[in-house]
Amino acid sequence: MALLSIKNLHATVGGKEILKGINLELGPGEIHAVMGPNGSGKSTLSYVLAGREGYDVAKGEIVFKDKNLLDLEADERANEGIFLAFQYPVEVPGVVGMTFLREAYNAKLRYSGHKEADAMEFLKFVRSRAKTLNMSDEMLKRAVNVGFSGGEKKRNEILQMAVLEPELAILDETDSGLDIDALKLVSEGVNKLRSENRSMLIITHYQRLLNYIQPDHVHVLAHGKIQRSGGKELALELEANGYAEFSGEAA
């Protein structure tokens, strides 16, 4: 039974069709990489899954844990277990990092009919998770992402993922803007979260992230469709040959 099943997905942004019939299945615990040239629709796919307004599904279906995902609001999807690590994490002035995490964590607890977490227990829990990502208490006291470096923002995304423990994590260009040390730190953080109960969809332009986070399956997205699928060796092939093979209009 697939955790996520996407069938013939067509999506438009501002009236323009970007996704033109995506088919994709992710089983529990599987890691899939979606690679493709710029403008192929990779980020659109991640936003459609997360439920961002303005990304309209014209045709097709998305089933997550036996539920029609398209019936759910963005916050309901998050509470069902979908987590989008943003390519460009948003700076939220005035909202303290710790408060943000607690609100998100409690939203999920309330959604599943549990009572909210004890504040002290939660603080300890977050601190232990932050420590593994080399994030200081100071960073948690600051407003979310405000004044953070590119690497700090990405680590903050992975911290949120570590706290919210999603069943499906979508990592949208998590490697972009990271130097090699930051990339290692972030990848280690992600690898610690690998589990048989957690699937991941890694969206990336470059193969280098996949050196650190090894996928089970690789798909090439171009012109709004999955053009090829294969094992992790496909990523290496793309690294060697580039996306030239997929640059023409799809047949």
């Binding site: 997360a50 439920g51 961002r52 307004e53 609001e73 963005a74 916050d75 998050a78 509470n79 987590f83 989008l84 943003f86 994490p89 948003v90 939220v92 909202v95 943000f100 609100e103 998100a104 939203a107 999920k108 959604y111 949120q160 919210l164």
Partner: peptide, 11 residues
């Protein structure tokens, strides 16, 4: 901003 919070489960 609103979407970022909603993507974390906050209505």
């Amino acid at each position: 901003h609103i979407f970022y919070l909603r993507a974390r489960g906050i209505d």
